[in-house]
Amino acid sequence: MADKDDKNPLDSSRRTMIRTGLVAGGMFGFGFAMVPIYNVFCKVTGLNGKTDPNPYKYDAEKAQVDTSRTIKVQFVATKNTAMSWDFKPTVTEIKVHPGQVGELDFIARNPTDARMIGQAIPSVTPFQATNFLHKVECFCFTTQTLEAGEEKVMPLRIIVDQALPRHITKLTLSYTLFDVTSMGERTLAS
């Protein structure tokens, strides 16, 4: 009303209400849009240590082994609070040259008397190295189902990228195992 002389203040109030209401609705949507934005941002930058959920396409001809340096890769297995499985790597540390395939096994055992489904979530530290640690084969690409009392040996094959920044000499690949029995079997890879 202050600047629009002929307008009824009720009309302009209604217009303001609709506009600000739309802003509020838009911001509700923006809250949800933060989920994909966050995921894309983290995927591009590797900031949260989440590795690629897809198997690395290993090309033997391109993969020049960089023998000039050796990278220590350490493995950590953690269970989420509610998880009752035994879960550990066969070795806690391997040494590989960039470009060389490193292999080891993780062992999972379901000590309960019920069929359970587990999902291992990987994370790499330091974060700057996240996009340089490739998993050719990993039990984390899909859920793992274990019958009551079953034990399973799960192979893991990794390659450290030749482009890994030179100041990084040690990586830690950590797995946290979650009980996802209620969510069913699925694959995280796209």
Binding site: T20, V23, A24, G25, G26, M27, F28, G29, F30, G31, F32, M34, V35, P53, N80, Q119, I121, T176, F178, D179, V180, S182, M183, L188
Partner: peptide, 30 residues
Amino acid sequence: IAVMPVLAGAVTMMLMDIHFGTSFFNAGGG
């Protein structure tokens, strides 16, 4: 009006994680 809807979104995601099996904040589900 800019941030209260974002809070509403956050608690809605919690609600869905708790009751509808989504995994917004559950690492086990991605």
